[in-house]
Amino acid sequence: MGTVLVENIRVYAYHGCLPQETQLGSDYLVNIAVKADLSKAASTDSLNDTVDYVHINHIVKEEMAIPSKLLEHVVKRINDRIFQELPTVESSKVAVSKVNPPINGDVEKVTVILKSKRS
């Protein structure tokens, strides 16, 4: 078993419960860690035998483009697509961070993390 990390995917998106969040948008960082058997890819040197991180990035960009009130909802959608579209993935950890959230405080970011396993 191995891990593929795709770290700090930067996205500008329109998530939130406040009107200004969905109108003005804000910066987000997305981090993905997926576990899969990477032993075949290590031997064959073939993209078909591994988890394609370009595909993960594509999923993130598409799902982040769909406005949601809650980051939890966005994270679940990303997780669901990873399992639907990447059959070698056994488990995943998806973290979405809103940078400089509008919460009347000096907060760098807020993050929602969900871990899932293939059922």
Score class of each variant (00 low, 15 high):
residue 26 S to A: 14
residue 56 I to T: 00
residue 114 L to T: 07
residue 6 V to Y: 01
residue 88 T to F: 10
residue 67 P to Q: 06
residue 49 D to A: 05
residue 106 D to R: 05
residue 52 D to G: 11
residue 57 N to K: 11
residue 41 A to N: 01
residue 110 V to F: 05
residue 27 D to M: 10
residue 20 Q to M: 11
residue 40 K to Q: 13
residue 55 H to C: 05
residue 38 L to R: 02
residue 38 L to Q: 01
residue 74 V to W: 02
residue 102 P to F: 12
residue 31 N to D: 14
residue 82 I to G: 00
residue 67 P to M: 09
residue 103 I to K: 08
residue 38 L to T: 03
residue 38 L to C: 00
residue 22 T to F: 11
residue 44 T to K: 04
residue 35 K to Q: 14
residue 39 S to N: 07
residue 69 K to V: 12
residue 2 G to D: 14
residue 97 S to L: 10
residue 14 Y to I: 07
residue 68 S to P: 08
residue 48 N to R: 12
residue 104 N to M: 13
residue 107 V to G: 05
residue 69 K to E: 15
residue 48 N to Y: 05
residue 23 Q to E: 14
residue 55 H to W: 03
residue 47 L to I: 15
residue 92 S to L: 12
residue 115 K to A: 02
residue 118 R to Q: 11
residue 101 P to C: 08
residue 65 A to P: 00
residue 44 T to Y: 02
residue 18 L to H: 14
residue 11 V to P: 04
residue 2 G to Q: 10
residue 19 P to D: 07
residue 69 K to D: 15
residue 90 E to L: 10
residue 118 R to H: 09
residue 102 P to H: 11
residue 23 Q to A: 12
residue 73 H to F: 14
residue 108 E to Q: 12
residue 15 H to W: 08
residue 111 T to E: 12
residue 6 V to Q: 01
residue 99 V to M: 11
residue 114 L to D: 08
residue 39 S to H: 09
residue 67 P to F: 08
residue 119 S to T: 11
residue 46 S to M: 03
residue 1 M to Q: 07
residue 70 L to W: 13
residue 96 V to I: 10
residue 3 T to D: 10
residue 91 S to R: 10
residue 44 T to W: 03
residue 21 E to F: 14
residue 51 V to I: 05
residue 108 E to L: 06
residue 37 D to F: 07
residue 71 L to D: 02
residue 26 S to P: 04
residue 63 E to Q: 14
residue 13 A to N: 00
residue 49 D to R: 03
residue 35 K to D: 15
residue 67 P to D: 09
residue 9 I to Q: 00
residue 66 I to M: 07
residue 79 N to I: 05
residue 107 V to M: 10
residue 82 I to Y: 00
residue 63 E to D: 13
residue 34 V to L: 06
residue 4 V to L: 04
residue 110 V to S: 10
residue 38 L to G: 00
residue 52 D to V: 14
residue 16 G to D: 11
residue 59 I to K: 00
residue 18 L to K: 15
residue 76 K to M: 15
residue 8 N to P: 00
residue 28 Y to E: 02
residue 55 H to V: 06
residue 111 T to H: 10
residue 105 G to M: 10
residue 1 M to C: 08
